[in-house]
Simulated assay, not measured.
Amino acid sequence: MTYQYIPRGTLTTQLAALNCGVAPATIRDWVRRGLLTRCGGTPKRPVYRLADVEAARYAAKPTREGQRAKTST
Rank of each mutant, 00 (worst) to 15 (best):
R8I: 10
N19D: 13
R28S: 12
R49Y: 11
R49N: 10
S72T: 12
Y58I: 07
R33E: 09
A59E: 11
E54S: 09
T37R: 15
A55L: 11
P46D: 11
R57K: 15
K44C: 04
Y5I: 08
T73K: 10
D29M: 14
G34I: 05
I6G: 01
C20A: 15
A69W: 03
S72V: 13
G41E: 04
T63N: 03
C39H: 03
A25Q: 14
T73Y: 12
P62R: 04
A59I: 08
Y3T: 04
A16G: 01
M1G: 15
P24F: 06
G41Y: 06
V22A: 08
C20G: 03
A23Q: 13
N19K: 14
T63K: 10
R32V: 01
T10Y: 00
G21V: 06
E54Y: 06
L36Y: 03
G9Q: 07
R8M: 09
R49V: 01
V47F: 02
R45N: 12
T63M: 12
V22L: 09
L11A: 04
R8L: 12
P62G: 02
L35D: 03
A69C: 06
L50R: 13
I27F: 03
P43R: 13
P62N: 07
L18H: 06
Y5L: 13
T71I: 11
K70W: 08
V31D: 06
Q67R: 09
G40P: 10
G41W: 05
L50D: 06
E65H: 04
P43C: 05
A69I: 12
D29I: 09
R49C: 08
A60S: 14
T71D: 04
P24R: 05
K61T: 13
V53R: 01
G40V: 09
A51F: 02
A17T: 06
R33Y: 02
A56P: 02
E54G: 00
C39A: 13
D52W: 05
E65Y: 07
G9S: 08
R68M: 03
L50A: 10
L18A: 13
L36F: 07
V47L: 10
T42S: 15
G66D: 12
G66Y: 09
R32D: 01
N19R: 15
G41H: 06
T71F: 07
L50W: 04
T71Q: 11
R57V: 00
G21Q: 12
T42W: 10
A17P: 03
I6F: 04
P24G: 11
A55C: 05
R32I: 00
P43M: 05
I27G: 00
T12D: 05
A69D: 07
W30T: 02
A56W: 02
K44D: 10
I6N: 02
L36C: 07
A69R: 13
C39D: 06
E65C: 02
A51I: 11
A55P: 01
L15M: 09
T71M: 07
C20F: 03
T42Q: 10
L50Q: 10
R28L: 08
T63W: 01
P24V: 10
V31W: 00
L50G: 00
L18E: 14
T26G: 01
E65G: 01
A23R: 14
R33Q: 13
A25N: 11
V22I: 15
M1T: 09
K70D: 05
V22M: 04
T10W: 00
Q67E: 15
T71V: 14
L36M: 09
R68A: 11
V53A: 01
G9F: 08
Y48S: 02
T10M: 05
N19F: 10
